[in-house]
Nucleic acid binder design. Structure first.
Lengths: 313, 313
DNA sequence: GTGAAAGCGCTAACAG
DNA sequence: CTGTTAGCGCTTTCAC
């Protein structure tokens, strides 16, 4: 009827009629049914965000920036936590498909995608931080942290360290591979030999970082430790701060990601800083760009090494 | 047709037919349209969460717990950030109504609700931390922090402090009123007189906390500072850590909320610890309890004073 | 055991 | 300028 046109801003409706309709609608608190619109095929305003968790400050800041941007663009942001679990991730994607989400921004969980079926559908996909090859064309917003990690090793070597340990993700993740490669490249650049026992890789998590760091601190001759992952860094820091004061004072520490409190801890935690706001902005730009076709672009943002107290000589 | 019954687990369908249907559905990655279900009146699986922000570790942990619980209960969690702005909040609520969210968990923004219209509708409402009187029956999950705050004052007095400052939310918030009252009650209990210049209230935010703390540190004779809010605490801590080392060493500090890193900063930040996981669990229980009627219950969880380095004599 | 009809809220495409 | 028809995907009736 006419009210539909009035509410949809169609031209063919009397000025007074429209205003009357709009007023009444406002008075009775009417809102259009998103379900009906979706069913007609008008699409939804829903965007999904899949993260391992949301307590890690990096992810929290990313989610915060995205939520803000989504509110501005009249999107609804649905968040699912995957805990880096493939099965949970697939479930979340299916649920997003149920509500016909326009797009998903996701941190792909480790493990090769076993030829994912129709888990994506019409959703635009933006991969964050990590990149997985997938059947579906997907944009990617990545971090170029190689130079910063090499730089960390060079810096530590210059401080006289020759026993530099590394904790990072294993080769299942593209980011795990590339960070480890950067670390090793750094060693090579300064002429240090790779010590297998000081290189720990695995499924990245707070617990993994904490346990590996604890072991390194207690049982290895390492004099410096470099982290290659957000949760790993926090876990390792937990072990570092909890360890015997004298022992940790002898260990140089370089974290990954830059939670706001790192600057206040232990004279300042040195770290690889990731430009989280730029990443979030790029991700939102990609999903706001509801352009029809998908050129599947890849963006990369440079990380920076920040030297503070824990890595000065 | 028959496939509908098969997919909906109705009894009236041949075993082999059902299995065939299910198999094909899985193969082609079929998922039910949430839009169609919603339109029929079956309700949605959507739950809204309205928070001021999500970088503050308290809110992040709350959101994390809720997101996890929602995934388990097959809910979809839509997050909107209000930045404590009333207008933004109302907009977010309307958007949640559009998608027929089952429930909203919200931290009400400051300011009396100007007889909110139909902003709620059929959504179950759970107020978090703060409570606002509203036309709609709403559950509330609150923090009983009075005893902990009184305790903080008593502890500081016992350490010899007589010039104790307080930064908190103003009277627009029930929580602001009650925390201030608890602080003053604490003063009274130890026989200290209230010093108006050392009591700062206003719209709670990181900036507000930082600026007030900076002013107190630089221009007041206070020897101790108690915070009455999450962002205020982080802002004040920022000023505290950034201030002249000598000056801040002379100032005892009691924060609010217990971000994981407080324990590592400056010998340990004393603080009022809120049981965030219990709060989140209660909120989820309330929304999972899709029981028809609304008894509008109020829950209260006890906060605890944690004394660390910054409040020891 | 299976099929046909109807309706949830909305709007594009046609009448009038 | 305004009204009617039809159909988006799904599940209840109610026949068969």
């Amino acid at each position: 009827m006419t009210v539909s046109r009035a509410l949809s801003n169609h031209p063919n409706v009397q000025k007074e009629t429209r205003e009357s309709v709009l007023k009444h609608a406002r008075d009775m608190g009417y809102v259009k049914s998103a379900a009906a619109m979706a069913m007609r095929g008008d699409g939804t305003q829903i965007v999904g965000l899949l993260l391992p968790n949301i307590v890690n400050e990096f992810y929290a800041r990313f989610a915060n920036a995205m939520a803000l941007a989504c509110d501005q663009n009249a999107f609804q942001l649905i968040i699912h936590l995957t805990n880096d679990d493939k099965a949970v991730e697939e479930l979340a994607l299916d649920r997003l498909r149920e509500v016909q989400a326009q797009a998903v921004v996701m941190v792909p969980s480790p493990g090769q995608s076993h030829v994912e079926p129709a888990h994506f559908d019409a959703m635009r996909v933006v991969q964050l931080i990590r990149q997985r090859t997938m059947t579906k064309d997907a944009d990617a917003v990545l971090v170029d942290d190689g130079p910063a990690l090499e730089n960390a090793v060079r810096h530590l070597a210059k401080q006289g360290h020759s026993q530099i340990a590394y904790i990072g993700a294993d080769a299942e993740l593209s980011s795990g591979r590339s960070r480890l490669a950067a670390f090793e490249k750094g060693l090579e650049q300064v002429g240090l030999t790779k010590i297998p026992d000081l290189i720990r890789t695995g499924k990245p998590s707070f617990e993994m970082g904490r346990d590996q760091a604890r072991d390194i601190i207690q049982n290895s001759p390492a004099t410096a430790l470099v982290c290659g992952g957000f949760e790993i860094s926090n876990g390792a820091l937990n072990a570092y701060m909890g360890s015997d004061q004298a022992r940790s004072d002898q260990l140089a520490f370089v974290g990954y990601g830059d939670p706001s409190h790192y600057v206040w801890i232990n004279g300042g935690i040195s770290t690889v800083q990731i430009p989280v706001d730029a990443l979030a902005q790029q991700a939102v730009d990609l999903i706001a760009l509801k352009g029809a076709d998908h050129p599947a672009q890849v963006f990369s943002f440079k990380a920076e090494l920040i030297i503070r107290g824990t890595a000065t000589g």
